[in-house]
């Protein structure tokens, strides 16, 4: 088995929610309750669960996009939770994210070349000519063409925008990519294209994916390992075949039985 590249240990994250009369009281919502999770190099770990189970919070806490209330995140031998400022930014180059909504996650006033090249600029990688070269190579790799560099996001379809989002994440040659529901806003035919693209890129660039999804059919195709979350707790983690064929928890079994068309389409 390959080495662990990103490891979350005893992660906790609490939200305060107003409650009671006039919202004067507060209740503590445990979005992450002592969650430990390991992502292995070059593999895909899918985090599944229903809305509110804490799967997106887990992704954001692992990347330090949200501050943790407890626990540590080990990446390349360092505890990300203890880093800040420049040290954290330096690590961020290797930790990238692809978002769910390709319409909301691209700045409508920036050209595609600028959007994809912004990370290179921030991390000061190469001179202007090299940056342009790398952006172009990446855009071509995800299926776009040179003239697309000067266009704006609204000129593209949902599937193309998701390709742009992938190019933006991968142009920095990251090691870990967190994909938060990257195909759930797309038509099923486009979804298949994007999933295959992600798989190809993973092989070519030796990427490790943390793949957040509520769609268990998609997960079956993309994941090597699956972590099941429920109410802020990680209730089960294991190989995708093991989880799907012999789930250890009643909750997982119920989730799998709810997949639409499971019996009928399998025939």
């Amino acid at each position: 088995m390959s080495d662990v590249i990103l490891s979350g240990r005893n992660l906790s994250k609490f939200y305060k929610q107003r409650s009671g009369k006039l919202g004067l009281g507060t209740t503590l919502v445990k979005a992450l309750d002592d969650v430990s999770v390991d992502l292995r190099e070059g593999t895909t770990l899918a985090v599944v669960g229903e809305s509110g189970s804490g799967k997106s919070t887990l992704a954001r806490c692992l990347l330090q996009l949200l501050p943790l209330d407890g626990g540590e995140v080990i990446f390349q031998g360092e505890n990300l939770a203890a880093l800040s400022g420049a040290a954290l930014r330096a690590q961020r180059r290797y930790l990238q994210m692809v978002f769910q909504d390709p319409f909301a996650s691209l700045n409508p006033r920036m050209r595609i070349g600028e959007i994809v090249g912004e990370g290179l600029l921030i991390h000061q990688l190469g001179d202007a000519e090299e940056r342009r070269e790398r952006v172009l190579r990446m855009l071509k790799r995800v299926g776009l063409v040179e003239t697309d560099m000067t266009k704006y996001p609204h000129e593209f379809s949902g599937g193309q925008r998701q390709r742009i989002g992938i190019a933006r994440a991968l142009v920095l040659e990251p090691k870990v990519v967190v994909c938060d529901e990257p195909v759930s806003a797309l038509d099923v035919s486009i979804q298949a294209q994007i999933l295959l693209l992600l798989k190809e890129l993973q092989r070519e660039m030796a990427l490790s994916y943390l793949f957040i999804s509520h769609d268990l059919r998609v997960v079956r195709h993309i994941a090597d390992e699956v972590a099941v979350m429920h109410c802020g707790k990680l209730i089960e983690q294991g190989d995708v075949e093991r989880i799907y064929d012999a789930p250890g928890e009643e909750y997982t079994r119920n989730l799998l039985q709810s997949i639409p068309g499971r019996r009928a389409l399998a025939a």
């Binding site: 099923v188 035919s189 486009i190 979804q191 298949a192 294209q193 999933l195 295959l196 769609d215 268990l216 059919r217 998609v218 079956r220 195709h221 995708v240 799907y244 799998l256 997949i259 499971r262 389409l265 399998a266």
Partner: peptide
Amino acid sequence: DCVPDADGKKPLKPI
């Protein structure tokens, strides 16, 4: 063909 199946046996094929 481009609908992923729950058993992961069928290869995905975009349209």
